[in-house]
Simulated assay, not measured.
Amino acid sequence: MVNTHAANISFQNLSQKNMSFERVFRNIEQFMEKDPAGNFKLMFGTDSQVYSRETKFITGIVIQQERKGVWACFRKVVIPRKMTNLYERISYETTLTEEVVSLFTNEKKERLIDIVIPYLYKGASFSIEGHIDIGSGTRNKTSIFVKEMMARMDTMGLKPKIKPDSFVASSYANKYTK
């Protein structure tokens, strides 16, 4: 089954522009196949930046092999207005993350898991995380949204991560919103 929605979404990184989701998925598979006995984390996160006439959203996809490197890309979405309501922006960031995660169908996730399965006895692992650019600290304006946004990530089958552990949203995606 072809996800028609996936056809309209393009990704990029420093070396490749206009990557289809299929190209992104193939890059992730190839990254994992290089050393299938590794400890892999597939991570997603979105950050935004409000400008005078628009709000720019960047959703990052990062596949990390612990202590061995990463492959990453991102999707850019620009809303042609200043989104000043913090809840609206955080909620939309989470929605964009969910949208990209939904491209990873069960069949796609199983293909990635199948890469590491033969190496589980050698310590291989694979996990999926959703990084949210919010913190639970009392001085953090976003702390009131933590439970709701974490529950949304959890519902998608992701391990939710918030600041300071949500680096895909707070560092990788953040860099490209500027």
Rank of each mutant, 00 (worst) to 15 (best):
N174P: 03
V101E: 03
A173E: 07
E129C: 15
K122W: 02
M83C: 05
Q49C: 12
F145I: 13
N8E: 11
T59V: 01
E66D: 12
N8D: 07
M149I: 06
M1S: 14
A169F: 02
P118Q: 09
E93W: 02
S48Q: 05
R152S: 13
E88Q: 07
K122Y: 11
G123V: 02
M83A: 04
Q65S: 11
L112M: 13
V168E: 13
V101H: 09
F31W: 08
F21K: 06
P80E: 11
A7E: 06
K159E: 15
K68Q: 12
I90P: 00
S125V: 14
V50A: 14
T95C: 00
K76V: 10
A151E: 14
Y87R: 15
N13V: 03
R53N: 12
K56D: 00
C73V: 07
S10F: 01
Q16E: 13
E99H: 04
T95S: 11
K122D: 14
P164N: 15
N174T: 02
I132G: 01
N140G: 00
F104V: 09
I132N: 07
N27K: 01
H131P: 09
F74N: 06
G123N: 11
L112G: 00
T177E: 12
L42N: 06
I162F: 07
M32P: 11
Q65R: 15
S102F: 01
A169M: 09
V78S: 03
I58Q: 08
T4R: 02
E99F: 01
I63L: 12
Y51A: 07
L112D: 07
I61K: 08
V24W: 05
Y119V: 06
S10W: 00
S91M: 13
D133E: 06
K76F: 01
T46V: 00
V168A: 14
K109I: 12
T155G: 11
S125M: 09
V100Y: 00
L96D: 00
Y119N: 15
V116G: 05
V116L: 08
T84L: 09
F44T: 13
N13C: 06
V100L: 01
L158V: 05
I9P: 03
S15C: 10
V2S: 14
I144P: 08
K109M: 10
N13P: 01
F40V: 05
G60F: 05
E99Y: 02
N106M: 05
E99I: 05
R152H: 13
F40R: 14
S91F: 14
G130V: 08
R75K: 08
C73P: 04
E22W: 02
K147M: 05
G157W: 02
E22P: 03
Y176S: 09
D35P: 05
F21V: 14
M19Q: 13
K82I: 00
E110L: 04
E22S: 11
E99L: 03
D133M: 11
T84H: 08
V50F: 10
T95M: 05
Q65K: 15
K122M: 08
F104I: 11
K34Q: 15
I63H: 10
N18M: 03
V101T: 04
